[in-house]
């Protein structure tokens, strides 16, 4: 076993999770220019949905995953309709505060429904690892990477070729202009929340299989994925994936150099450095021209 290979493998596994969650932040930001800070809590709810399906309804894990993704997609759409849509033209601060309130609300809900005990979706004993390029990777971890890569490919194909995927990209480029060519803005925003929330639920379930489920799990994961989205360039889909893996790798390689107790701090250090030296992120571009145009369209 090589330590370097192991750190890189751990970084990729963590990065896969961050990438899945970062996509939700970046897709919503791309269209609505607002950070959905309740996104981490959707992830947490998704994990609990799957937990309930497995432990109370006796579903196999794959079915529980699908149900959890569907329920979370629905939750995301409801959140958008009930909490954010009425505030769409109320400036930037109002939806942000609402998102923070929602996040506290969902955490409290989970605490009431499922209690504060730590749960897990881990099944059987800890599985024996496979040695790949000198790193020990468990079957579950392989599953995390394979699922993430598969989902990313599907998302990429959807955005590139599907009519709705193209409509989503158009809405991200210029929302009012998209409306003038007949794209149903509310529908596209709803689908964006649904996809982002389903991906968050997938991440939540994968974390639950690998580690634990608790009502506060969305906070750290959410903030790290948000960091990943900013590092990659907020609003940029490829950027979110790149940022996810970047944060995962930096964090896991970082603990080679500093005490592992500081692991969580590394992501924030990266965020601060990024915001100082390249606030638009790795793949982000300044879109002043588009922004000006959007405003001129609305006058």
């Amino acid at each position: 076993m090589s330590v370097t290979a192991q750190l890189i493998a751990n970084g990729i596994i963590a990065g896969a999770i961050y990438a899945l969650v970062a996509l939700g932040y970046t897709m919503v930001y791309g269209i609505l220019k607002f950070i959905n800070f309740a996104h981490g809590e959707v992830l947490m709810m998704g994990a609990y949905f799957a937990y309930t399906c497995v432990n109370y309804l006796g579903m196999p894990i794959w079915l529980a995953l699908l149900v959890a993704m569907a329920l979370s997609a629905l939750l995301g759409v409801i959140i958008e309709r009930v909490a954010y849509k009425p505030l769409r033209y109320s400036g930037r601060l109002a939806p942000l505060i609402t998102a923070i309130a929602l996040s506290i609300f969902l955490q409290s809900m989970a605490l009431i429904i499922w209690g504060s005990e730590i749960r897990t979706l881990r099944q059987g004993s800890v599985s024996k690892g496979n040695e790949i390029f000198g790193a020990v990777i468990t079957n579950n971890q392989l599953l995390i990477i394979a699922t993430t890569v598969g989902v990313l490919i599907i998302l990429h194909l959807f955005l590139k070729y599907a009519k709705l995927g193209k409509a989503m990209r158009a809405a991200t480029d210029n929302l009012p202009l998209a409306a003038t060519i007949g794209i149903e803005v509310d529908k596209v925003i709803g689908i964006t929340f649904a996809i982002g929330s389903a991906l968050a639920a997938l991440a939540g379930v994968l974390v639950g299989i690998e580690q634990n489920i608790e009502p506060t799990m969305g906070i750290t994961l959410g903030i790290k994925a948000f960091t990943a989205a900013v590092v990659g360039g907020i609003g940029n889909i490829q950027g979110a994936v790149l940022g996810g893996f970047a944060v995962g790798l930096i964090e896991n390689i970082g603990i080679w150099f500093i005490p592992s107790g500081y692991k969580d701090a590394i992501a924030f250090l990266v965020l601060v450095i990024m915001l100082i030296f390249r606030p638009s992120g790795i793949l982000g571009t300044k879109k002043e021209e588009e922004m000006g145009k959007t405003e001129s369209l609305f006058g």
Partner: peptide, 30 residues
């Protein structure tokens, strides 16, 4: 707006009103 266009009215708004990150062909398709 998304209903108005369905009545057979098109608008070319002021400025460079294209979807910049989409290709020319994708702009036309949309």
């Amino acid at each position: 707006p998304e209903k108005v266009v369905r009545h057979g009215i098109s608008i070319v708004p002021q400025g460079r009103s294209v979807f910049p990150s989409l290709t020319v062909r994708e702009n036309l398709e949309l």
